[in-house]
Design a protein around this nucleic acid. Structure first.
Lengths: 148, 148
DNA sequence: AATTATAATAAGAACGATTCTCAAAGCAAG
DNA sequence: CTTGCTTTGAGAATCGTTCTTATTATAATT
């Protein structure tokens, strides 16, 4: 079960990369596994701390490739460090709790009812303005359990 | 009318700064006026482009002071540039349309009904996790009128 | 007004996260 | 196994941001 989910994940990633003429190398696979295991947005420092990704420059470059391929998403917000997470296509639509004190970010989800309200609203926004919505980002700002 | 609103604005800012033993200098007043006039989050480059704020280092320092005093808020999200806007106390609770293409950010507001749903939800979040919500951030991601 | 103490400014140096360069290593196809 | 092309890794370069420091402005006090 766990194994088949992982197979799906890697197959999907490989497909996305192929579409961009990019190979799914061991290094890139390691990155995807780190992000999948984390379950929350991680910094470059956290990626490197595991030891599975040896070179910082490669980590940045490959994350950038994965972002372009639509597999990974950049997350800003807590502090001045960029964080990375798997794209929602590979996880689930979710949101972030951002700690104003330490900058850490955790995931959470909201009821479908509310998500639907939001989507409806954004449809209206697109009618009013020239803006074309593709998705949304809902973060709760506050202090995390460690800092509170 | 416009004039009295501006007086209120500056009086409020001055009060906040005083509480932090900070002066409301001409340079800081210029910053506040730029942010108030913009009506959307602006980058340092945009702040300097006006010419009213001569030194980049001073702009950064003063914006940082204003952030600490609770007068200004940092906004991340579009590209890798930090943007600044007046704190909600001085404007109104609002949200952002973030262009994935050019990084520009525009303001918008949502119906009270929905805001209340969000606030209720975050109360529940705080009960479930150790996280203490202070506020939220709701951004629409998409392409702006210029880029779409 | 002059004095003094403290805070703010401006220019550039320093810093740090991210990106770029390029030689070496890896991989796929003939 | 070559040949051609991609990826890797180490470090240099870049660029947004912060820090340092000498100078200038401000406020308070005589």
């Amino acid at each position: 079960m766990l194994r088949s989910m992982e197979q799906d994940l890697h197959a999907t990633v490989a497909g996305h990369l192929r579409r961009y003429d990019q190979r799914y190398t061991n290094g890139r696979r390691a990155l995807v596994e780190i992000l999948a295991a984390a379950g929350r947005p991680v910094t470059i420092a956290e990626v490197l701390a595991g030891g599975a990704v040896p070179a910082q420059s490669t980590a940045y470059r490959n994350l950038s490739v994965l972002v372009q391929a639509g597999v990974v998403r950049k997350v800003f917000g807590g502090d001045d460090l960029t964080r990375f997470e798997l794209a929602e296509e590979l996880t689930e639509h979710h949101h972030h709790m951002v700690c104003v004190n330490c900058g850490s970010i955790e995931d959470f989800t909201v009821p479908n009812r509310l998500e639907q309200s939001l989507d409806k609203l954004f449809g209206q926004v697109s009618e009013t303005t020239g803006f074309r919505p593709q998705g949304h980002r809902l973060d709760v700002i506050g202090t995390c359990g460690n800092c509170g």
